[in-house]
Write a protein that binds this DNA or RNA. Sequence first.
DNA 1: ATCGTTTCTGACTACGTTGTCAGACGCAAC
DNA 2: GTTGCGTCTGACAACGTAGTCAGAAACGAT
Lengths: 347, 347
Amino acid sequence: MTSHAASDDARRRPPGMTDVARLAGVSQKTVSRVVNNERYVSEEAREKVLRAAAELGFRPNTAARALITGRFKRIGVVSLGSALYGPASMLVALERATRAAGLSFMVANTPEGQPEAIQDAVDWLLAQGVDGILLSEPKDEGQHLRPAGVPIVSLGQAADLPESQVALSRGRTAASCREAVEHLLDLGHAKVWHVAGPLDWWEGRERLEGWAEAHRARGIEPPPPLQGDWTPAGGYAAGLELPPEATAVFCANDDTAIGLSRALNEAGRRVPEDVSLVGFDDIPAAAYLTPPLTTVQQDFEGDATHALDVLMRLLPGAVPPEPEAKGAAPRRRLVVRSSTAPPLSHE
Amino acid sequence: MTSHAASDDARRRPPGMTDVARLAGVSQKTVSRVVNNERYVSEEAREKVLRAAAELGFRPNTAARALITGRFKRIGVVSLGSALYGPASMLVALERATRAAGLSFMVANTPEGQPEAIQDAVDWLLAQGVDGILLSEPKDEGQHLRPAGVPIVSLGQAADLPESQVALSRGRTAASCREAVEHLLDLGHAKVWHVAGPLDWWEGRERLEGWAEAHRARGIEPPPPLQGDWTPAGGYAAGLELPPEATAVFCANDDTAIGLSRALNEAGRRVPEDVSLVGFDDIPAAAYLTPPLTTVQQDFEGDATHALDVLMRLLPGAVPPEPEAKGAAPRRRLVVRSSTAPPLSHE
DNA sequence: ATCGTTTCTGACTACGTTGTCAGACGCAAC
DNA sequence: GTTGCGTCTGACAACGTAGTCAGAAACGAT
């Protein structure tokens, strides 16, 4: 009878090493050895075990393994819960790197605007059981995380715990922003305006500083930055305040540039003839905007593998030191399209 | 003597119920009862235990719990590894719904273009240990998944296993596409062209069918659909092939509309004066494009909670039947902006 | 023959939790 | 007094795996 209450007994437990051992005619310990690829197993025993395991559809029980080893082979990721291109791409890259390393991947998102959400997410992951935590938060609310008992690596400026460690040197983002601004200055623009990201995000501050540094390196006083919020809406609002004399703008991200572009359009200012525009992120749509957007392409894969690498070295039973050989440094890249041009000589 | 437990001794295992029990002067089993909020614990014992647990920084070991109960309190999600707005938003919504339900959330992404990737991702999740699996794949390569031993719920058309179950009725997407197309027909357009998503994605097929149905319902023969691939690049390519007589286009998603819009611009055709445009997704940039894009807003939160709800009812020790009371049906919504207008009367 | 070494195997146990069950206690009804 | 029944408690036995250790078997060197 199919009753709604699932009070059945047919829920059999999946086969364990003991079942495999019985079928193969060996001991449970030998099965364990085969499964873990230990030494000192005869070829004959190994084959018997593998055959039996396949026949029963055996899968090692990770809970039992974690119980006895004290390791979960699992890392937790605290990520900004957002479909923004940056965080979403980073999450995909992190999952790929993690699975490639044979670790499983648990996510706890943080909604925006809640200062204690990061601590909550960390606590949640610890309660679920993880060996380490990656903090993929573009903002730095996590300054004062409590000690967690497991290593925490932040993908940018953040927590200042003894056990935490900043994975990505903050120089990289700033450097590529400098490059973007220099591109505009080289085109002949006297100064470059900037629509910043929120300044309580370290990502926002780094991009701002890279922009400012590019000016200072040439002895130019940067104009006052406009305030954006990563969204097209913020870019649009900033666009309304952009002074008439501005001929070049570096936006903190592509969405901001989209909003700004709309505001310029409505004001009858053409891109790039009247105003040159550079974004940041290289979202898929960037190449197909009108005009196609000059922007900075990020290297999420590189950042993700690097951060995971750093974390894994902090794990107990870690990878040996092996100094920095693996993988080239993540590299960002300026993609020049049609939204940038020399300023019109005006007379 | 100040009891500052958990000082250093970093190599020590974290405290267990036995340690809490010793400190509290009760049995380990009583600690278990307190932690699990079981009945028949005196207020006095409960307080002693809670105090001791707090002092030691005790956290229940999920591995041991999973070992004995045979449940992980964890669901796995197989998702398309992509920063596309749709999949990324769905992932965020699923994480939120899952954590709200007290389950932990493990992700396995599938790279595009690999037919066996879904099976691999499922196997990976099963190896890590999950109680159920949500398939958040907009395409349907997973038609022939092997039996998994745990319930699998797909967020759309997909696997045809006995234990799987389709969560979202396929009618919803089609219905909102119909609405979008009807909006264009109501404006006076004779027909509406369509730039489809890939047709090996069920999402692509559903949107195509909704578009076609809207025509048939009015006795109109739909024009041949153009082929897109969700990307602006695909939309651009489709735009190059759009016949001159087309006055209205329904794009399978917003990115496609962005690419198409660019192609139209280059051809000197204005939106919406010459061609009306409707997208799908309502990405954040949609409202700030030039012109702001009419599009269909999705309800990821609603879909996610619904799918999780269905899955949880299939779990052993499930939620009681409780027929369909919880949560309103997910609702999509046409957002009319400036990219749609009546056709120019041409004479 | 005896010894040592390498290879292989399985019995036993520990990991931290929950399920089972027996028993102690208090209290009300007989 | 006894009986019955809720309430509370702890001893004990699992769960499925990996670590420890003792020992068997094979083989070469003494």
